[in-house]
């Protein structure tokens, strides 16, 4: 069997601090979870593959970023040439959703036009736990509904997941991988190779 074709894309994780960006990534890449992770400073980098078909792999170059507002100053570097962005929020925090929305607005203005944005609500385990504890509660628990309607309105992919339990994590990355412009990637690769061959031919011609 031949080696799978690999398409490579850049993905950034954005969102308010302590919503679980690093934990989400750690669960996805290593399948583990820690209650307390060191806060991310600047940005952390990771490469991870998602197999879409037996012979097709999407390799994500993932940038995990610091959540605090002021780190936005470094943001243009984060999402320069990014193909996808996961904007993460905490399913129990209205404030983090507001922060996510402001990230989406910024991406729409500043990032590449073709960027795929997914709104990802984390800490689903906590939400479920709260719901289980008060099944008959009349008040609204969590902000799922708000987030869902916002995502639909803004045309974003939407996921709810839990880095702690691992629930739905695969789905997030797989879902984003499927949206990647894979065909374009391969055709541009071919073009580049063709270009390199042309250059090689012409230079050897000169040498004669």
């Amino acid at each position: 069997m031949s080696a799978p074709r690999i398409a490579q894309f850049k993905l950034v994780l954005l969102g308010e601090s302590a919503v679980g960006k690093s934990s989400l990534l750690l669960r996805f890449a290593r399948g583990v979870y820690e209650d307390n992770r060191e806060s991310t400073i600047g940005a952390a980098f990771l490469a991870q593959n998602v197999r879409l078909e037996p012979d097709l792999v999407v390799r994500f170059e993932i940038w995990d970023t610091a959540g605090q507002e002021r780190y936005k100053a470094l943001a243009p570097m984060y999402y320069r040439n990014a193909n996808a962005a996961l904007v993460v929020f905490d399913l129990l925090s209205q404030e983090s959703l507001a922060r996510a929305q402001s990230w989406v607005r910024e991406l729409r203005v500043q990032a590449d036009d073709g960027i795929i944005i997914a709104l990802v609500g984390n800490k689903l385990d906590l939400l479920n736990q709260l719901k289980a504890e008060s099944p008959n509660s009349s008040g609204k628990i969590g902000i799922s509904e708000d987030a869902k309607s916002y995502a639909a309105e803004a045309g974003l992919l939407y996921y709810e997941c839990s880095a702690k339990t691992g629930e739905n994590i695969e789905a997030v990355f797989k879902g984003v991988a499927e949206k990647m412009p894979i065909n374009e990637y391969f055709s541009s690769q071919e073009e580049e190779q063709q270009h390199a061959v042309d250059l090689g031919a012409s230079s050897s011609g000169c040498a004669c």
Binding site: E38, I41, G42, Y78
Partner: peptide, 20 residues
């Protein structure tokens, strides 16, 4: 003016004074 992306990795070297 457009720093290479690697500077995202080296920024924390300065910001947290090499801690962690």
């Amino acid at each position: 003016s457009t720093l290479p992306p690697v500077s995202l990795c080296t920024a924390p070297w300065f910001m947290s004074l090499m801690v962690n």
